[in-house]
């Protein structure tokens, strides 16, 4: 516990606030998944998993590299779950078919996470470079699935725009826009090797140089976008689920 509080005091206050908001959003979305229709389960579980993926900063055992890698894998599973949920919702809007049950969704999610954990366990300890690669893959998946989800949400909204819940999908569109900015700016920094992880890697482990100092403005801008869009994403997810909860009450 002491280690946990020590980590909290060491964290950047901005990142801490972001994790707290994601914690609240995760709690709200998880609660939402319990009391609502099956189709919402994938979506809300997915958003809950974002919190788990963001919580590595406050994880007392976060210095274990396999655990850090696991956090990023959880992040990838999160966006896949969310996309699966919105796809199901879109199918429902076109065919009115609702299939499956909540327990299977919960168990499948646990199964995927367990399989990911097993994958990390049976493989060598990931280097910082490998962890950065995993994180970059996660961000790439997030960016492209965010674009796809914005299109799905638009189509869902058009199909159900005269129902109670339709405005909730506009809110989801906003959520994915913020997440797109958040993950997109992070991916941008990673692709051009301007991210903090790469700076740490080359400072300690390689002889490679960096052009970090040549583009301070765009790097600064991207970092600010990442910070604020990440914060807004957490706030908007919590707000959206609260709003939908009220619409469906």
């Amino acid at each position: 516990m002491e280690k946990f509080f020590e980590l909290l005091t060491q964290m950047n206050p901005f990142d801490l606030v972001q994790v707290i908001f994601w914690g609240m959003a995760g709690a709200i979305s998880f609660y939402f998944s319990i009391g609502n229709a099956r189709v919402w389960t994938s979506i809300s579980i997915g958003f809950f998993l974002i919190f788990l993926s963001q919580a590595y900063g406050i994880n007392p055992w976060g210095h274990y590299q396999k655990l850090t890698a696991f956090h990023y894998i959880v992040g990838t599973v999160a966006i896949m779950m969310i996309t699966h949920g919105f796809l199901e919702y879109y199918v429902f809007c076109r065919t009115f078919e609702i299939s499956g049950n909540k327990l299977i969704v919960y168990l499948s999610t646990l199964g995927i996470l367990a399989a990911s954990g097993a994958f990390l366990l049976i493989n060598p300890n990931p280097s910082p470079n490998t962890i950065r690669n995993i994180r970059m893959v996660e961000n790439a998946i997030w960016v492209f699935l965010c674009v796809m989800n914005i299109e799905l949400v638009r189509k869902i909204y058009l199909a159900i725009k005269d129902s109670d819940i339709s405005k909730g999908f506009i809110a989801f569109g906003l959520v994915f826009f913020f997440i797109f900015l958040w993950k997109g700016s992070e991916l941008y920094l990673q692709i051009f090797q301007w991210d903090q992880d790469w700076q740490d890697i080359i400072a300690l482990m390689t002889d490679e140089s960096t052009d970090f100092d040549q583009y301070p403005a765009r790097i600064q801008f991207s970092q600010e976008v990442r910070r604020y869009a990440g914060l807004l994403s957490g706030i908007s997810v919590g707000g959206t689920f609260t709003y939908i909860y009220r619409l469906l009450k």
Binding site: A37, Y89, F92, I98, D164, L248, K249
Partner: peptide, 12 residues
Amino acid sequence: ERAAKLLISGTN
């Protein structure tokens, strides 16, 4: 009812 739960409020 099952389908409506995805679209409208409990009151409605």
